[in-house]
Amino acid sequence: MNARSPQGLPARLLLAVLRAVRTYPRRSPLTLCYVGLLVLGHVWVENLLSTDRADALRGYISTNLDNLHDHPVTALFGSALLFDGTLTDIASTGFGGTLITLGLGICCCLSWAERRYGGLRAAAVLLGGHIGATLITAVVILIALRHGWYPDSVRQDSDYGISYGAQTSLAFATLALPRWARLPWAAFVLAWPLSGDGEWPGPLPDFTTVGHLLSAGLGFALAGTAALLAARRRRTEAALATADAHT
C-alpha cells in the first residue's frame, strides 16, 4: 500500500508521531526538562510527603491574595512547579484537566513554541501567562470583594498549578494551525474552562475561570503580536530583496 494514498494516512500519522517523539529531546529540551520537573514534583507531593505536609506545601505556594501579599515570589514561582491534577485516575475529570493542561498545553503547545521561537521566548509565553493572569486575576478578586461578588474566604482559597501558563500556551499555539482550524481551536481554548460544574458566586464566574479566560486572552494577544512582527519582517525582507535586484 502506498503511504501517500488515503489508505496510508494512519501509517503517515504513526510515522509523524514516532518522528516527533524521537526528536523531542533535541528540539524541545527546555519543555522536556520542565515536564520532568512537574512529574517529579507531582510524585513527591502526592506519594512521598505526608498528607499534612503536602497540604501545607500546597497552601504555601497557592497564589491567593494572602500569599501574594506575604510572599509573592515564592508563591508565583512555586505554584508553577506543580500541577493540580492526576496522572492515574483516568476516569476522573481531573485527568481530563491534566490531558489539556500538561498534555496539550505544556507537552505539545509549549514544545511547539520552543521549536518555533526558541527556549527563552517559549519560557516568556509560559511565565507571562502564569504570572500575568495571576496578578490580573488578583485585581479582579479585589474588585469583586469590594462589590460583594465573592465571599471574603476567597482570600485564602487554594489556587496553584500550571494551568494559567498552559492556557496561554494553548492560545499562543493558534499560530501553528492552518487558518481554517484557528477559530474552532480558539473556541475550544475559551470553552473548556467554562465547562466545569462550578457555580457563579455573582455576576462573575469563580476566580479560577476568570484566570483561565484572562490567560487565554494573553496568549491570543501574544500570538497576534508574533504574527504582526513576522508579517513586518517578511515585508522588510521583500523590500530589501527588491532594492538589491535594482542595484
Rank of each mutant, 00 (worst) to 15 (best):
V45P: 01
A54D: 04
F83Q: 12
H246G: 08
Y150T: 02
T101D: 12
A223H: 00
G165Q: 03
G59A: 05
G211C: 04
S28I: 09
S28G: 11
H130D: 02
Q7C: 10
W112G: 04
F172H: 10
P193D: 07
A227R: 03
Y34M: 12
A176Q: 08
Q167E: 09
T31M: 12
L214G: 01
L214S: 02
V21M: 06
A80F: 05
L229E: 12
V35S: 05
W149E: 01
L102F: 09
H147R: 07
P25S: 05
G105D: 14
T51V: 13
L104V: 02
L175K: 00
F77D: 01
T23R: 13
L13W: 10
G119S: 13
E199G: 06
P25Q: 05
C109S: 14
V35W: 00
A166M: 03
H71S: 04
L229Q: 12
L68Q: 11
P193R: 15
A187G: 15
R179Y: 03
R12S: 03
L49I: 10
L37A: 05
H246I: 11
G148I: 10
F77Y: 11
Q156A: 05
A239P: 00
R4L: 12
R116V: 06
A171T: 02
L14P: 02
G224N: 05
C33P: 00
I100G: 14
T63M: 08
A144H: 04
A245Y: 00
A122S: 09
T88Y: 14
T209P: 04
W192N: 12
N64H: 00
L49N: 07
G96E: 03
A124H: 09
I143F: 14
T247M: 07
A11H: 08
L87M: 13
G196C: 06
E114L: 14
A238S: 04
V39D: 12
H69D: 06
T74R: 14
G36S: 09
T86G: 06
N64V: 03
L204Q: 02
D52C: 05
N47M: 15
G59H: 02
H42E: 08
Y150M: 05
D66P: 00
F220M: 10
M1A: 13
P193M: 01
L142F: 08
A166S: 08
R182G: 03
S153A: 14
L9C: 13
L104M: 12
L18F: 11
L82Q: 11
C109E: 12
L82I: 06
L102M: 07
A3T: 09
A133P: 00
R26H: 08
L175N: 06
T93A: 15
L82H: 06
G211W: 11
D244N: 07
W112P: 01
Y60H: 09
P205F: 10
D152C: 03
P29H: 07
A91T: 15
R235N: 03
L37K: 01
W44H: 06
R121T: 15
Y117F: 15
W200L: 09
A223T: 04
Y164S: 00
L190A: 14
L49W: 15
I141Q: 11
E237Y: 08
L65H: 09
A20V: 05
L127Y: 13
A245N: 03
S169C: 11
H246L: 15
G161I: 09
A241L: 12
A245T: 04
G41E: 11
A186F: 00
T93E: 04
Y24R: 03
R26F: 10
G41N: 15
T225W: 14
G128T: 06
G196S: 15
V73E: 01
T51K: 12
A191Q: 14
